[in-house]
Amino acid sequence: MELEIEQIRDQQKETWNKFSPGWKKWDELTMDFLKPMGDEIIKLLNPKSDAIVLDVAAGTGEPGLTIASHLNGGKVISTDLAEGMLEVAQENAKKRGIKNFETIVCDVCELPFEDNTFDAVSCRFGFMFFPDMELAIKEMKRVLKPGGKIATAVWNIPDKNFWITATMETISKNIEITPPPPRAPGMFRCAKEGFMTDLFSQAGLKNVSAKEVTGKLNCKTTDVYWSLMNEVAAPVVAALSKADEALKQKIKTEVYSLVNERYPEGAVAIDSSALVIYGEK
């Protein structure tokens, strides 16, 4: 099992590094898309101005950068498996003049910090991809100070996330995709009601709660939507790599038709839904 977890972790690292240029290119659009979930995490954590905050699976820097910009005397340490993503985060910090922000490349299951180091831990859209979620939450709790807060966001059920299902379901109708094992990393792995709150409670966290937070992927046009999916969505790129040009074109045409049917006026702002889970040590 350990070998399997290590293989998944290495695959995740390779994938996110490969896609970091796409995330950099689309950073403004994707960060606008994910902002409501980050805002809810920040609201729940409500860090004091001198807080030391850990942001796990930080990607291109949010919500850690926004948290750091609110602190006075405190700082944010952002971690991620992929150095390519954290390089973008560092560039974003520099652009915004945020100096109380550090990045460390590491695995959530082996956090390089002493026990009881942080006042708060944030993790926006990381849990679905962690090879061992139980170990991940234990590590986050370990480095959290007594009374410290943790908040995370995961994607809700597919029916509430047309922004990804429009493409992935069209692909699966045209290409035979082997379903992943039940516990394998994936977009909707944590979507089942009660799954994340149970995980938090079983880790010994208190005052656990979950809240649905909605957002919109404001692409404006179907062309932008299709380009985005092909440059930041790893499952889309992996699936389409198995198709020849004719089949890719067929899938593209069907996706366009599906999106345009939903947004006939051409203002493509696609609904999304996430769950934000909170707990205290």
Rank of each mutant, 00 (worst) to 15 (best):
N207V: 15
A57D: 05
G22K: 00
D159S: 15
E212Y: 12
S241N: 08
E14N: 08
L3R: 10
E245C: 09
N72E: 10
S227P: 01
Q90H: 08
Q90L: 10
V56K: 05
N100G: 06
P36D: 04
M196A: 11
R189A: 03
A239L: 05
L3I: 08
G64N: 03
L65I: 07
F125W: 11
S201N: 14
L3V: 09
V213C: 12
K13I: 08
F19M: 07
C106L: 10
I5Y: 04
D107S: 06
R96Y: 00
W226N: 10
L275A: 08
W16R: 05
G215D: 09
L240P: 01
T30G: 03
L275V: 14
I137Q: 02
M37H: 01
I175R: 02
N218H: 15
E193D: 15
Y278Q: 14
K99F: 15
I5N: 09
G279W: 00
G64E: 07
E245W: 06
I52H: 13
G74M: 08
L240Y: 03
K248M: 06
E169W: 06
N207E: 13
I52W: 03
S272R: 00
L240D: 00
V76R: 02
S69Y: 02
T197C: 05
K248C: 09
P185Y: 15
E4W: 08
V213W: 09
S273L: 06
I177D: 12
V143Q: 04
R183L: 13
D80W: 11
L275Q: 08
P47A: 13
V236Y: 03
A51P: 15
I150R: 09
T30K: 10
P158C: 13
T152S: 06
G73A: 15
S209D: 10
I5D: 03
R183D: 15
R262N: 11
K138E: 05
P158R: 13
G126N: 02
T178H: 08
M196S: 12
I175D: 06
V232W: 01
S69R: 04
S122P: 00
Q12D: 12
E114W: 10
T167E: 06
K250Y: 12
N156G: 10
I277A: 04
F101S: 04
G38P: 01
P146V: 01
I277E: 00
A82L: 10
V276L: 09
P63R: 05
N161R: 07
A151D: 03
R183K: 13
R183V: 12
L247Q: 11
I98C: 04
D271Y: 14
I137S: 08
P47Y: 12
K242P: 06
E212K: 08
T197K: 01
G38R: 05
F118V: 02
K25P: 03
L199K: 15
D244M: 12
R96H: 02
A184F: 11
D198G: 15
W16I: 13
Q11T: 11
I67H: 00
E62G: 06
L258Y: 14
V154E: 05
L258E: 13
S49N: 05
W226Q: 10
S257C: 11
A210Y: 10
A68G: 07
K206V: 03
P63C: 06
E2S: 11
P264R: 04
A210K: 06
Y256E: 14
T222M: 01
L81I: 02
E110R: 09
N17C: 13
E114F: 10
I5E: 05
F118A: 00
I277F: 01
N17E: 14
